[in-house]
């Protein structure tokens, strides 16, 4: 089984909204060795002009994750999870994620390339807030190894 080339250009339905909790931001911050007070202390965050604690730059992966699960579960996708390797990752922010945000992610497959039996699939998850304004786009390139 190999990756279905017809996935290219496919846009998935938005996943259920993700409510960013203050303690989750702190927990994630501790896990990635983020010690800046703006990640942990609401007063420090407000003093810097933010409404609450600010999530570390890679926190968006937590919101993106449900969209990648959707992609891997796509019935006609042909993506064998056990053959997937994470190749590249990028986050492009319009504004930072702060505690209290309600975020909705929508995945689109923007590119599929085949290289020597392997497939390289690029998935863009566009993440917007409760007003529909763009917050961050999380872009993953997944390498799907071909049959040996």
């Amino acid at each position: 089984m190999s990756v279905n080339p017809e996935l290219q250009g496919r846009v998935f339905p938005p996943v259920a909204p993700y409510l960013v909790g203050r303690e989750k931001v702190r927990e994630f911050s501790r896990a990635v060795f983020a010690t800046n007070p703006i990640n942990h202390d609401p007063e420090a965050a407000r003093a810097a002009g933010h409404s609450d604690v600010v999530a570390p730059p890679t926190f968006a992966v937590v919101v993106q994750e449900a969209t990648l699960a959707q992609l891997l579960a796509e019935p006609d996708g042909g993506i064998d999870f056990t053959r997937v390797v994470h190749g590249d990752q990028r986050f492009s922010y319009t504004r930072p994620i702060v505690a209290g945000d309600e975020l909705t992610a929508t995945l689109a497959v923007t590119s599929i390339k085949t290289l020597g039996g392997h497939s390289m699939l690029t998935a863009e998850s566009t993440i917007v807030d409760a007003t529909g304004a763009h917050v961050v786009t999380a872009i993953s390139t997944l390498v799907v190894r071909g049959d040996e």
């Binding site: 983020a34 010690t35 730059p57 986050f91 492009s92």
Partner: peptide, 22 residues
């Protein structure tokens, strides 16, 4: 996630990181 933290500490605010790729 950890590799960007020295940059966050240098700029002083995690919100200043507007794009990050590896």
């Amino acid at each position: 996630g950890l590799a960007v933290q020295p940059v966050v500490d240098w700029v002083g605010d995690p919100a200043r990181v507007v794009d990050y790729q590896v």
